[in-house]
Design a protein around this nucleic acid. Structure first.
Lengths: 232, 232
DNA sequence: GCATTTTTGTGTTGTTCGGCATAAGATTTG
DNA sequence: CAAATCTTATGCCGAACAACACAAAAATGC
């Protein structure tokens, strides 16, 4: 993790949340933020830590995960730029209940508490955006709870692959999912053991639903993958 | 479901969220709400419906659940008075992704969309309360995802009993959980089959961790119940 | 107050999936 | 570039739990 200077432009340009800000608020923001970069596999924050401010992922990819029974990891969210991370704890006035780790080299911008609160209080549009964002994430979490508990392994894995596709999109070739995860991370995302993630990915490849090239996963038969996911 | 007149006083007195409102806002609120009562087992709203306004549970107990694979039910939240229900969908500008059913005869107050938005925009304290509430619920949902997927049956059931105790409290005797659920609902809360809920409750009773009298469940050994929950 | 339906309770069987072992391949490090 | 470590891969076994069947008890409806 090392500091950088300027990323506020990126922040304002790319993320609709900040579109609602006035000139003055932008000025306030630009005087109250810090940018840091994290290498692949570096921890951005850990469970039980106090949130330092509003974190905004500018570049890179980040996994948000919780440690459960016996330290077993469950990924609860995957973040892409430009989006907030760790903001739940901040707004709930709690310590973090999950950890964040960079999947790729990433740039994170921290908006300091005081400035954030001031903007939040004087700009209702911005507050509404935060509300909408939390409400969306809560919907996602509830859907996830049901599918992770009820679907079988094949269904869970298929859903995870579709989720990764929707979150990070495809590469230029139009069918390779634009994120490279270890089998272990895929397992932690899908609530299964690494062995079973490997096994089931191989099965999907044999059935020509996907093709595998190391950590590159390409979707060969989207309809079939969706059917496996829906079936459970 | 039948209409009633006056419950705005209850709403304002008991719920800290509305403490932030000014006289004018109170006035606006009192001109823009409807109260309805629901009998036990009546549906308050269903998955895929459009939210009618901000619902506030005034009296009674309500379960919020999703239907998953093959119609299998998973309870995602239990609501007690005074608290909001169905507000996630409203704020996300989506249709409901869960259904709500009265566990007991209940009174629900609907605050109409327009008035809500107006108050939300002019009162930052109120907006902050909504943000905090959503952030809290999201934290709960994430914790739940991990425990429901990782804990074993005994751990899940123990956790559910502790959760019900924390949510609804005890009766005057100091050890009976103040909600009476069917074994089926307990199962749907704990992600297990009804058979296994019955079996495991019996086991807990035999071990003197709880005692059972029909749907009345009393906690006889809290420490032990917590240990079972923590162990997984 | 009797019949019907729902809820609770218990045993049996079968499937899914985790745990573990082992090994080959890939990547990192000194 | 060799050693060590991490990741991927595959097979086997056993435990956890769902599915099913059936019976008794309780609640509900006419």
């Amino acid at each position: 993790m090392e500091n950088q200077n300027n990323c506020i432009e990126v922040l304002v340009q790319n993320n609709s949340v900040f579109k609602t800000l006035t000139e003055d608020e932008m000025q306030l923001l630009s005087e109250n933020y810090t940018c840091s970069s994290f290498k692949k596999n570096e921890i951005i924050f850990k469970e039980a830590e106090r949130p330092s401010g509003l974190l905004c992922l500018q570049q890179g990819k980040v996994k948000i995960y919780k440690e459960g029974v016996g330290g077993r990891e469950q990924i609860v969210r995957m973040a892409k730029p430009v989006s907030f991370i760790g903001y739940r704890a901040l707004f709930a006035n709690e310590n973090h209940i999950a950890s964040a780790e960079a999947i790729e080299n990433s740039v994170v911008c921290t908006i300091h508490r005081g400035a954030l609160e001031q903007i939040l209080r004087q700009n209702p549009d911005f507050a509404m955006e935060i509300i909408r964002s939390l409400a969306n994430e809560l919907g996602f979490a509830n859907k996830r709870t049901v599918t992770l508990t009820q679907k079988h392994i094949r269904g869970r894995l298929a859903e995870s692959l579709l989720f990764l596709k929707d979150t990070y999109g495809m590469e230029e070739d139009g069918h390779t999912i634009n994120i490279y995860l270890s089998r272990e991370d895929i397992a932690h995302l899908s609530n299964m053991t690494t062995s079973n993630a490997i096994r089931t990915l191989s099965a999907f490849a044999k059935e020509e639903v996907i093709s595998i090239n190391g950590r590159r996963i390409s979707i060969k038969d989207l309809k079939k993958l969706e059917r496996i996911s829906d079936l459970g």
